[in-house]
Structure formats: C-alpha cells, structure tokens
Simulated assay, not measured.
Amino acid sequence: MNPICNLFHIKYPIIQAGMVWCSGWRLASAVSNTGGLGIIGAGSMYPEVLRAHIQKCKAATAKPFAVNIPLLYPNIKEIIDIVVEEEVKIVFSSAGNPATWTSFLKEKGITVVHVVANTKFALKAQEAGVDAIVAEGFEAGGHNGREETTTLCLIPIIKSAIKIPVIAAGGIGSGKAMLAAFALGADAVQVGSAFAVAEESSAHPAFKNKIISATEGDTRLAMKKLVPVRLLKNEFAEAVATAEADGANREVLIALLGRARAKLGMFEGDMENGELEIGQVSAMLNEIKPAGEILQDIWQEFLAEKDRVTKLAF
C-alpha cells in the first residue's frame, strides 16, 4: 500500500495544501470526502476561528483531515492547545523549527508532517521525529525557499537523503505532474494552487478569476530579504519589484508590506493593492470547479498517463 495513504488512512495520495485565506473547513472537508487529505490552514486564523473551522470540518466529514500550523505563529501555544483539545489527528507544520513541537504533538497521538525546501531542514525534521516530509519546490505559491530549488531537482535529492515518506509540492496541479513527482521518488503530492480556485475555497471570487486568467510569467518570487514569497503580478507586486531594484532594505520592505496585505487581496478581493500568493502552475488553471472534481481529474489523468508511459517503446 502507498505509505502516505497508509499513514493518513486516505484513498488517494493527494494532499490539499493548507493555504492562507483559501483553506477553510469547506475546502478541507470536500477534499477529504473525495478520498484525499484536506487541510485547514491555520496561518490566517485567530485561535477561536480555527477552533470553529475544526469543529465544522468534523461535522462535514468523517474522513481524516489535517491542520497546517506555521510554527512562527504568534499564538502558537494557543493554536497547539486547540488542535489537541479538538482531537485533530494530523498536523502539517511549517515556517519554523519542527523540534519545538513535534515530540509534544506525537505524545498526544498526532501524526506530524513538516514542510521544507532543502535537504538540511529535511534532515532536521526527520531527526525531530516527524512522520513525513513535504518537499516544496521553487514553483510553489506563497512562502518559498531561499535556494530557489525546483521541484524537479528537490524531490530526488531529499528522497535520497531521508528514510521517511516524501510528499512532493510545488508546480503540481495535474495528473501528469503527479506522475512526474512519483517518478522522482515522491510517495504523494501536495496540491495548492489548483485547489485555491475550487468552488469550496474561501478565496475571494476576484482572486480566483485572476488566477484562472494568469498566463506564463505572471508570477514572481519577491521579498527575499524578508521571507521569499511567490506573488501574482499587480500594482503591489510591481511596487515591491521597484523597491527591490532600488536596493530596499528589510525595514523598507516591511513598511511597504504593512499589515494584512494578503487578506486584503486573497480574501477581500483587492486585486491591485493586495498580496496575491499563488504558484507558477496558475498559468495552467482555467476553470473554477468543485474540489472533488479537481481531485478526481488529477487522479484519472495520473492513471491514464501512467498507462501511456508504460506502453511507450524505447
């Protein structure tokens, strides 16, 4: 049996990313009900908002689901307590040191997965005792690795360095990409951008429409002096690019970013002044449809491509 399906008790080795302002209980439960692993993104939720999403997700699905927790979250202790109190069975951690909370979570019977963008942190996460790794390549949306290693290179490097299962992420929005990730050694895939435009995604309709209108080259990696993040191009992204070209330091970039910039764009729908986090695969997305249909399309294409490649004569 697939090790990730066995670990999470799911039907398909397809994980929905815990994206800020997109991954609420509706999306997570829809993905889980279809046989994948849905994830609630805690990064854009106050503690009690997260509790409400967990409770609604439990009411909407009897299948496994997870919560993604950025470990640098200011209310991290409160968030962890809520996850334990609400008996969440799977946690995906990111943006911080996994050694801080992994042992505590595992003592509570929680399966822990950590997101990394290089081999150094994959090894640290494995040493911390996590059950699996998400290896996220440069193509991914949102916060990204400073090394700018693409998924094509990152997956086989990390797979050869660690002994626990590897979930590939970054640029994966189709069955063809999923098959490629498996060929590189992945045990499962994590899909973000393709689910950001799902009907059940909590992203603003204007953001979804901008994603499906995106073409090749419409995203860029920005703010490397802070935390690298991949953005759709708009007035805010161009202002950041201009500031960086002029040699802006961290303080200038922090002031330009301000507060709640991602919420302004992704959740409230300001397509020019908001921060619009999305992956390069947005150029391949052209339709808003139910999450279950998205998952099944990926899986069926994966199976069809696997058969096609198997039949190739070399």
Rank of each mutant, 00 (worst) to 15 (best):
I110C: 00
G18H: 00
G96N: 07
T242S: 13
S202F: 09
M19Y: 05
N273Q: 15
K58S: 11
K106E: 05
N2C: 06
E86V: 06
I133D: 03
V227G: 06
L37R: 08
I155Y: 02
G292L: 13
M266E: 10
P98H: 03
V31G: 01
I90F: 05
H53G: 06
S202L: 12
N273P: 10
A206H: 14
A169D: 01
I157R: 12
L264T: 14
D218H: 11
A304Y: 03
T150N: 13
N286T: 14
I288R: 00
I79V: 15
A222P: 06
I82W: 05
E238I: 15
A17S: 15
A304W: 01
M178R: 00
V31I: 14
I162P: 02
S93H: 07
L184H: 03
P165G: 11
V189G: 00
L37K: 07
P47L: 06
R26N: 10
A125I: 04
T242A: 14
R26H: 09
V88C: 04
M266H: 06
I298V: 11
G217M: 12
L226F: 10
W101Y: 15
K263C: 13
I288V: 15
R250S: 12
A188R: 00
K224I: 10
V197W: 03
F267T: 04
A255N: 14
